[in-house]
C-alpha cells in the first residue's frame, strides 16, 4: 500500500466516522458505539472484499446501520445510559468479531478491488464516497425536512409534542449514521495494515471520530477540516518513520486535545443533555 493510499483510507475513515457521529448527535444521541459500529461494518465489508467494491461497501454500510440501530433501540425514546450502552456494544462487537472469525475459520481479505482511476491517479473509492457523504450529510441535515425533524428531535425538550414520530426519526438518523460508520469502518480496517487483529477493533478511530464530531459541533465541514488535520498528523508520523502504534496514537492524542480546546463550545443538541 502506498503512502498516499494509506493516508486517504485513514482520512475517509475519520471523516465518515465523524459524519456518522454528527448525524446521530443531531438526533440527540451521542454515538458512543461508533467503534463497535465501525468494526461490525468493517468486518462485514472485509469478508466480502473479494466481491466487487460496491457490494462490499453496501454490505459494510448495511451491517453498520444494523449495528447502530441495535445499539440505539432502547435509547430511541429515552436517553437512559448511552455511554455504558456504547461501551458495552463496543465490547460485544469486538468479541463478536472474534467469535465470527473463529466460526468462519479466519478472515482473509484483499485491498485490490477498492481503487479507481481518476485523471491517471490511482485513488481509493473511499475518497469520493466520503466526499459525497459529506455533501449529502450537509444537504440532508441543513436543507431538508428530514434534517429539520432530526434537529427538532435533538433540540426540543419534548419533540413528541410537535407531532413527531420521535422513534422513527431517530431510528432513521441512527440507520444513516450506522451506514456511514460501517463504510468508514471498512476504510479504517483497510488502512490499519498488516499486523491488525480483530480484537483491536478499529484501533480507537471510532472514539477519535466521535471526538471530532463533538469538537466540530456536529458541523460536517468542520468535521472535514478536523479530519484533514488529523490525517496530516498521521501522515507526518509515517513520514518520519514512527512505529505503527505511535502513528495511530498520534491522531487520537490530537483528537483529545482538539476536544479539550473546543470543550466550552458545545452543540445545541448536547446542551439538552445536561
Amino acid at each position: 500500500m502506498t503512502f498516499t493510499a494509506s493516508l486517504s483510507l485513514f482520512f475517509a475513515a475519520l471523516l465518515l466516522g465523524a459524519l456518522a457521529a454528527a448525524i446521530a448527535g443531531r438526533g440527540g444521541r451521542s454515538l458512543y458505539a461508533l467503534e463497535g459500529v465501525m468494526l461490525t461494518g468493517g468486518l462485514t465489508g472485509v469478508l466480502l472484499s473479494h466481491e466487487p467494491a460496491g457490494v462490499s461497501l453496501l454490505a459494510a454500510g448495511g451491517a453498520g446501520a444494523a449495528a447502530a440501530l441495535l445499539w440505539g433501540l432502547p435509547l430511541l425514546r429515552y436517553r437512559r445510559n448511552q455511554v455504558l450502552a456504547g461501551i458495552a456494544f463496543n465490547g460485544f462487537a469486538a468479541s463478536g468479531a472474534m467469535i465470527a472469525a473463529q466460526i468462519i475459520g479466519g478472515v482473509s481479505y484483499t485491498r485490490k478491488g477498492y481503487w479507481l482511476e481518476i485523471a491517471g491517479e490511482n485513488v481509493t473509492v473511499f475518497l469520493p464516497v466520503a466526499m459525497a457523504a459529506l455533501l449529502i450529510v450537509w444537504l440532508l441535515v441543513h436543507h431538508t425536512c428530514f434534517g429539520l425533524r432530526l434537529r427538532l428531535c435533538g433540540q426540543s425538550p419534548a419533540p413528541e409534542r410537535m407531532g413527531l414520530r420521535v422513534r422513527v426519526v431517530r431510528g432513521f438518523g441512527l440507520l444513516l449514521a450506522g451506514f456511514l460508520g460501517g463504510i468508514g469502518g471498512l476504510s479504517a480496517l483497510l488502512s490499519l495494515g498488516g499486523g491488525w487483529r480483530m480484537a483491536w477493533g478499529v484501533g480507537g478511530l471510532g472514539y477519535a471520530a466521535l471526538a471530532l464530531a463533538w469538537a466540530g459541533k456536529y458541523g460536517p465541514f468542520r468535521a472535514f477540516g478536523l479530519a484533514l488535520l488529523l490525517t496530516l498528523l498521521y501522515g507526518a508520523a509515517a513520514w518520519f518513520g514512527a512505529p505503527e502504534s505511535v502513528q495511530t496514537a498520534l491522531p487520537i492524542l490530537a483528537a483529545l486535545i482538539l476536544l479539550a480546546i473546543a470543550g466550552r463550545k458545545r452543540p445545541a443538541e448536547e446542551r439538552m443533555e445536561v
Partner: peptide, 27 residues
C-alpha cells in the same frame, strides 16, 4: 471461542445500561 465470556459480559453491561442503571443521569 474464548471470547464468548467477554461477549456475555458485554451483553450484561448492555442490559444494565438499557435498564437505566447508570451514574447520575440514568433514566
Amino acid at each position: 471461542s474464548p471470547e464468548m465470556g467477554e461477549a456475555i459480559l458485554a451483553l450484561i453491561l448492555y442490559c444494565c445500561a438499557a435498564f437505566a442503571l447508570g451514574p447520575g443521569k440514568g433514566g
